Amino acid sequence: MKDTSHHDERIAKMIFGSVYPHYLSKVEKKGRTKEELHYIIEWLTGFNTIKIEELIENKMTFESFFEKATLNPNAHLITGVICGYRVEEIKNPLTQQVRYLDKLVDELAKGRKIEKITRNS
């Protein structure tokens, strides 16, 4: 993947709360629930529903969001293509973490079982 500093900076400065409604809409259109979305966000970051809502309310950037997160030790098992990039090949750690989240949301929307999404099987 050809990372550019401009691309990485743009992702770092994006507000989690501005992207979250798109995540929710995407999964709900496919028959999944807000609770399932929160479950996978908590699996990846350690943030429960109350913390997720607080981060949205405080207009947290992705940079701050992932600085405060406790990334799941199995996050490195998230592989595949999202937004045209192989997540396992992304060099910038923050961009990779954001794409991990994007990939999990995508898998949830595509109907994948939670156990598979959270790499428990």
Rank of each mutant, 00 (worst) to 15 (best):
W43A: 09
T79G: 12
D102K: 01
K29I: 06
Y100E: 04
I117G: 06
Q96Y: 01
I11D: 05
F66K: 00
F47T: 02
K26P: 00
M14Q: 13
E42V: 01
T45D: 11
F65P: 06
R10L: 10
I114P: 04
L101P: 09
L71P: 02
H22W: 07
P73K: 05
M1S: 10
Y39I: 03
F62N: 02
K110E: 15
V98P: 06
R112D: 07
I82N: 09
I90G: 03
A75E: 11
I117R: 02
L24R: 04
D8I: 04
L101G: 07
T79M: 10
T49G: 08
K26I: 00
V98T: 09
L101Y: 00
N58Y: 00
T33P: 09
K30L: 14
I50G: 05
T49S: 15
G46C: 08
K68Q: 15
K13M: 14
K34F: 09
Q97Y: 05
L108W: 02
C83M: 08
D3S: 12
I114H: 00
Q97C: 10
K59Y: 04
I11H: 02
W43H: 02
R86T: 12
K113E: 14
V105L: 04
I78N: 01
S121I: 05
V19R: 08
K30Y: 03
S5C: 04
S121P: 07
T61E: 13
R32K: 15
V81D: 10
R99D: 07
H6K: 14
C83N: 15
K91L: 11
H22G: 12
L77H: 09
S121V: 07
K91M: 10
E88L: 06
Y23T: 01
Y20F: 15
I40W: 00
R112C: 05
Q96M: 11
I114K: 06
K30T: 12
T61A: 11
N92E: 14
K51W: 03
A75C: 08
T49C: 07
N92D: 14
S25K: 14
N72K: 01
F16A: 02
C83T: 02
H76C: 11
I52T: 04
P21R: 06
S64T: 12
H7M: 10
N48T: 03
T49P: 01
E53I: 00
A69S: 14
L55W: 01
Y39W: 05
K29Y: 07
E88H: 10
I50D: 13
R10E: 13
Y39F: 10
N92P: 06
K13V: 07
A12Q: 09
N120M: 15
G80D: 12
A69I: 07
L24S: 09
R112K: 15
K59L: 08
S18K: 15
K110M: 13
T49V: 14
Y85G: 03
K51C: 10
Q96R: 15
H7F: 12
N48R: 12
V98K: 03
I56Q: 08
V81Q: 10
P93E: 09
L37N: 06
L77D: 09
W43S: 09
I40R: 03
E89F: 02
T118Y: 01
Y39R: 11
